[in-house]
Write a protein that binds this DNA or RNA. Structure first.
Lengths: 191, 191
DNA sequence: ATAGTGATGTGACTTGGTAACGTCACCGTA
DNA sequence: TACGGTGACGTTACCAAGTCACATCACTAT
């Protein structure tokens, strides 16, 4: 795996995750990452990722696309919450069990690094906005779309946290289903 | 207003807001800010703010405190949404009309700068978490508290946006009241 | 062979952010 | 009046993130 091998992007991601897990995010230099990814350099890193944080969140727009498409394809008669539910199922189902270990590592690093928590919050907000936009083009009102989207996002993140931190062998989709039900129950008790 | 005058912190904030509004955030250097704030230096800036973004968000923990206290003091019989409502009123009422112009400027800069949008999202998440925590210590369930807190935060931010961008002379508290009602109405149509 | 193309490297630069150490104003006390 | 202490501030030097212009390498097609 040397300089001119293909998949530099994937190698960079892998190297970054490894180094962050070993030494922590702040203690790891971009040069280090590039070096471990087959003797690359800082410049190449920045050709693939806009900044140091992004290497851990790259490709996350796919999640928004999955949810948006599921919402667009939901049956005519679906309520906003039903659209969100099918979007949530679609997204959660796209995570194979094998990714659980990586997810766990990822989550640990992010949770322990303010800089990454910040980026995570930002991504989460963007994802919520994209979902709300998809709901709006299905005719849902602005505020209604925002609330429903927020519920979906919250369900996903909560499910992801349980998936990566709880001992069982449940699927992410199963967790998501559960959380969604709990969320709807909690909704009923609010007032 | 020279080097050893008091209120360096306030002078730094004022200088930063001015410069960001004039030249944009990225085009403004920390040395510039410190210089305009009465011949100060970078070091002094960092003694008052942990990083360049923070100068625009400093003192925002107060908002969380206001909401938390209102929730703690809500009547025994209050539902979660009623607690959030009184917290929202308390927070919105703490913004005098005079701050509207500053708020408008602030918002413009933040909206046009990715780096600041990110910090804003992070602050918003922290605020939501603090509110949820306050609700939980009033006995609300974890997920219920998170949803209710999210609704309150969303109401506040939406109200703030309307306050700073709409032409009328309505108070922030009035906007917040309206948004809260709309939010509850939207909630009912979700499923 | 050669020319083009895309991925990579080099080197120099700006700026955010940190740290060690020195300096100035002010205040209380002897 | 002199003295010492204490914050707030400055100086200097440094590191790493991020940008840019320009050079180089591998590969492919003509």
């Amino acid at each position: 795996m040397a300089r001119w091998d293909p998949n530099a992007r994937e190698r960079l991601i892998r190297a970054a995750v490894e180094l962050f897990a070993e030494q922590g995010y702040e203690a790891t230099t971009i040069n280090e990452i590039a070096q471990r990814a087959g003797g690359l350099t800082k410049t190449t890193f920045f050709r693939h990722f806009s900044d140091k944080r992004e290497v851990l969140f790259a490709g996350q727009e796919i999640h928004s696309r999955i949810m948006s498409e599921a919402i667009a394809e939901a049956p005519e008669s679906a309520t906003p919450l039903e659209m969100v539910k099918s979007a949530l199922d679609a997204l959660a189902s796209s995570f194979p069990q094998e990714r659980r270990e990586v997810g766990r590592k990822l989550r640990t690093v992010v949770v322990n690094t303010p800089e990454l928590r910040e980026r995570s919050a930002s991504k989460r907000a963007a994802h919520t906005a994209a979902t709300a936009e998809a709901l709006r083009s299905r005719g849902v009102s602005q505020l209604g779309a925002e609330i429903a989207a927020e519920l979906g996002t919250r369900a996903f993140y909560t499910a992801f946290e349980r998936w990566t931190t709880s001992p069982g062998t449940k699927t992410l989709a199963e967790h998501a289903h559960e959380v969604f039900l709990e969320l709807k129950a909690a909704l009923a008790v609010l007032e």
